[in-house]
Amino acid sequence: MKELDVVTFGETMVLLTPELMTPLEYSSRFYKQVGGAESNVAIGLQRLGHSVGWFSKLGNDPFGRYIHKFVRGEGVDTSRCIYTNEAPTGIFFKEKYSSTNIRVYYYRKNSAASLLSPDDLDEDYIACAKFLHITGITPALSLSCRETVFKAIEIAKKHKVKVVFDPNIRLKLWKIEEARSVLLEIAAEADIILPGLDEGELLSGRKTPEEIASFLGKEKLVVIKLGERGSYYQFGNENGYVKGFHVPQVVDPVGAGDGFAAGIISGLLRNEPIPDAVKRGNAVGAIVVGANGDVEGLPSKEELEEFMKGATYHRDVKR
């Protein structure tokens, strides 16, 4: 089986966004995009020159086929995707009042992806990767999804595949008490943890990046996202802050954390020192917020290098 740099899995949905910046109830025309934390990371890594596999359970419907073709069209391996007639593909709507006032409405309950089960995992496929990337969204979708996540982690550890965990807390999907318990159990098994500051506070009850990172474990690489301020990292006795990049105009912040994860993993795959890998994550996140949509702003390897050198970043992204 072909070796992959990263394998990831989870729910990807069709995103419908109004053509105009108006409330949804007054919107009549929408454009169609794709959004999902794990597939965002997969596409981001693929554009940065890495080999990536992503899989999910998709509805055997037009939206499911559209997602499959879109992700595969980005060069991501989708050979382990599964179609089902038992449930539809999830969708969500993005309502933009301004670049800083965005509301997201999900229609994903009992979706096809929520039917993922441990039986859908291919052990050899996970074993062929260097990293397994998972998020805290998947275990919130259903009990079978939760069991699938823990089984995937078990497989990864058995084959010495490093586990990257982005908590990606979605309190619309579950209560904080349940989320904290399950996500801390996943974090205990992960090698790399990528929370936002707010997520770190929810999980640990601590306030500062230093306290949160120490709570999650000094033997792990913990990188805490601090928005425009950059990031804080800790690994053993190595720690520090890495400055963020100036963003002239925030167009759409959704998906920036996934871009950040792709940048971090890319740096680690390139065997960069941790501060350099974190800098790469900061840069991808900064680029992503300058474009509409979850994946439209994800840069190529050449575009990222240009941005990080301080050159003016030009990208023609429609809408």
Rank of each mutant, 00 (worst) to 15 (best):
121 L>F: 01
262 A>S: 15
230 G>E: 13
177 E>T: 14
166 D>T: 10
192 I>Y: 13
191 D>S: 07
226 L>W: 07
133 H>E: 05
216 L>H: 10
124 D>I: 03
281 G>D: 01
279 K>H: 02
297 G>V: 03
90 G>L: 10
309 K>L: 05
253 P>S: 07
316 D>A: 13
255 G>P: 05
3 E>C: 02
232 Y>L: 07
187 A>E: 09
41 V>Y: 07
138 T>P: 11
137 I>M: 03
142 S>C: 08
116 L>K: 08
68 H>M: 09
25 E>S: 12
146 R>G: 02
192 I>D: 12
269 L>M: 09
158 K>T: 14
48 L>K: 00
70 F>V: 08
50 H>S: 13
201 E>N: 08
242 V>F: 05
148 T>C: 09
277 A>I: 11
214 S>I: 14
263 G>R: 01
136 G>N: 07
315 R>D: 09
72 R>F: 02
166 D>R: 02
287 I>H: 06
289 V>G: 02
77 D>R: 00
36 G>L: 08
276 D>E: 15
292 N>Q: 14
186 I>M: 03
79 S>Y: 04
278 V>I: 14
269 L>E: 09
277 A>N: 12
206 R>F: 15
238 E>Y: 01
261 A>T: 14
268 L>A: 02
273 P>T: 01
76 V>T: 09
303 E>F: 06
306 E>L: 12
24 L>C: 04
196 G>A: 08
119 D>S: 15
263 G>T: 12
28 S>H: 15
140 A>R: 00
208 T>H: 06
311 A>Q: 06
55 F>W: 12
59 G>T: 04
153 I>N: 04
305 E>A: 11
